[in-house]
Structure formats: C-alpha cells, structure tokens
C-alpha cells in the first residue's frame, strides 16, 4: 500500500511538472503571438488608450493612497533607527532610495496585479465564457489583436507610470511625517535626497524594474484569462492565479533584477 501511495504521489508530481512546463511553453508562444499581433492594435490608438484608462487611471486612487502611507511609515520607522546611529539627516535619501529602487516598483506591481491584473483576467475569462471571443473569431476579427494586445500594452504602459507616482507620493508622505510632524530639517531632507539619488543607477533601474514587472503581470493576466476554463469556477480560479502567480513573479524577478542592477555597487 505505501508503495502504491508513493507511486501515485510520483505520478501526480510528474503530471504536475509536465503540465507546468507545457503551460510555460504555451505562455511563451502566447507572448510571441501578442507581439506579432501588436502593430495592428497599437496603430488603433483608441483601443490601447481605453485600456490605459481602465488599468492605469482607475488604479490611481489605490496606488496614490498606498504610496502616501508607505512613505509615512518609512519616515516614522526610518527616522527612529537613523537617529539612533546619528544619521537622522539621511532620512530623505533613505526614503527616496527605498522607494525608487524597491518599494515603488514592487509594491505598485503587487497592487497592480491585484487591482488591474485580476480585472483583465476576469474580463477576458468572462468574454470567453459568454462566447464573446468565439463570436469575434466567427466574425473574422482576431481576439488577439482586438482584445488581448490592447489590454497587454495598456497595462505595460500604465505600470511604470503608476510605480513612479507611487514613489512620488511616498516621498511626499515621508516629507509630511519626517519634516512637518517629527521636525527633521527640510533643507537637509531635500538636499541629501538630491545628492544621494542618482538618475542612472537608481531612478532608471527602478523604471526598468517596473517595466519588467508590467510585462510579467500583464502577460500572466491576459494568458490566464484567455486560457481560463469557460465556467464561473474557471474564471474565479484564473483570477486567483493571476494575483498569486503575478505577485510571486514580481518578487522573484525583483530579486534577479536587484542582483544584476545593484550587486556591484557596494563593492566599488
């Protein structure tokens, strides 16, 4: 009996692994298909603009408020620790680097996956469930050009903008708490920030990170929606998968990108 159970376990593990590899391969082909169908949808600016509104503009409230609170908490926690080591003057640069390099892209990416990614998956999944995609195919209109590519690019364009706004609001929140409430010096706050944050190593790398996260989350969102089982349960599962896989992808990619972008800086 234990041998049977072991055999079943191994079979299940093998089937799961094969299934995962097949899905990754399918997702890669799907990504190539989106790219080849992109010129037609990008030329029709209105389609992508509409998706920027849904994925980007409608995410503004959650992104701006989250950025504000994250910046405020950073200032509160950071000021205490920095003061303990006599480095209270570095509050501005500490907050800015934390936000621009890491928290801005990562937290904005996680929020984006939850708010916009799940909405994209649910919308495409429901269109599939209610035969809207099949109807489009039968009208000789390719859903990849008309539905998938505009949503993908709308999200990819929105993501770095949202991450930048998250960081801006975070800095603003840190200023309110650090300077206005705690009493750190305003000139030192801004001056050290300007001196300590570089455009290329910090801001540009942060933007690159948010672009990579945008591509990952949007690909996962449209793929999960497009391949969702056409049932209520299937759409629910696909939406959950988008949030879970998208969030994990952001954290894993963040580690890899951080290794390549910032690892050598301290050694110099």
């Amino acid at each position: 009996m234990p041998a049977d159970a072991l055999g079943r376990g191994v079979r299940r593990l093998g089937a799961g692994t094969i299934n995962a590899v097949v899905r990754i391969g399918y997702a890669a082909r799907f990504f190539v298909a989106i790219l080849t169908h992109s010129p037609q949808s990008i030329l029709r600016v209105g389609l992508t603009t509409r998706e920027i509104y849904f994925a980007g503009v409608l995410s503004l409230v959650i992104i701006l408020l989250s950025g504000l609170f994250v910046g405020m908490v950073l200032a509160l926690q950071g000021f205490d620790v920095l003061e303990k080591y006599g480095a209270g003057d570095s509050l501005g640069v500490f907050v800015a680097l934390s936000l621009v390099r890491e928290l801005g892209p990562v937290v904005a990416g996680l929020l984006f996956a939850s708010r916009a990614g799940s909405a994209i998956t649910a919308e495409i999944g429901l269109m599939k469930t209610t035969d809207q995609l099949a109807a489009m195919e039968m009208m000789a209109v390719d859903p990849l050009s008309r539905i998938v590519a505009p949503r993908f690019w709308g999200g990819v364009i929105s993501m770095p903008l949202l991450a930048a706004l998250f960081s801006v609001m975070g800095v603003f929140g840190a200023y309110i708490v650090g300077v206005r409430l705690i009493g750190a010096d305003s000139g030192t706050f801004w001056g050290n920030m300007r001196a300590g944050v570089g455009f290329w190593p910090d801001i540009t790398n942060g933007i690159i990170k948010s672009c990579v996260f945008g591509v990952a989350v949007c690909l996962i969102a449209v793929f999960e929606g497009y391949t969702a089982k056409p049932t209520a349960e299937g759409v629910a599962t696909a939406t959950t998968r988008t949030v879970v896989i998208g969030s994990l992808a952001i954290l894993a990619l963040d580690f890899v990108l951080t290794v390549f972008m910032f690892r050598g800086m301290g050694a110099k």
Binding site: L126, T130, D131, A134, M139
Partner: peptide, 11 residues
C-alpha cells in the same frame, strides 16, 4: 454570420 446560443453580445 453566426448567432450564438445566448447571443454572445459584447457586454
């Protein structure tokens, strides 16, 4: 032209 079972109108 095709009419789907429940219409499949774009919602």
């Amino acid at each position: 032209g095709m009419l789907f079972q429940f219409g499949a109108l774009f919602t």
